[in-house]
């Protein structure tokens, strides 16, 4: 019983927590929405390969907003980065992923 409940909860959690949650950003509205969508697309496309997802995000961002962008995707990490003002996005996605995108050239 307990096991099923835990599973149910987990499923619930997965379902409920699948949305992208922006933890911190200083981007402008337009850029933020675009970046967030890009992150979601990349993470869904490469669900099992964070490296590819990060690569995709970085390359797209470089094209759209100019170099040089840096992307970190992972389930657990700590960081301290220097970024250009109004060019940082730190978000959670899918309940277990953290994505940090910033620009620093």
């Amino acid at each position: 019983m307990a096991g099923t409940e835990v599973k149910k909860e987990e499923a619930d959690y997965k379902r409920l927590h699948s949305f992208p949650l922006i933890r911190h950003t200083d981007m402008l509205e337009e850029m933020r929405v675009e970046t967030m969508e890009l992150c979601v697309t990349a993470c869904e496309k490469f669900a099992s390969n964070n490296e590819s997802a990060a690569k995709m995000i970085k390359e797209s961002m470089d094209k759209k907003f100019g170099s040089s962008w840096h992307v970190v995707i992972g389930e657990g990490f700590g960081f301290e980065v220097t970024h250009e003002v109004k060019n940082l996005l730190y978000m959670f996605f899918g309940g277990s992923l953290a994505v940090c995108v910033w620009k620093c050239s």
Binding site: R23, G74, G78, F79, V81, W102
Partner: peptide, 9 residues
Amino acid sequence: RSIFAATAN
């Protein structure tokens, strides 16, 4: 520029 730091787990 500014500095941002966080821990993700």
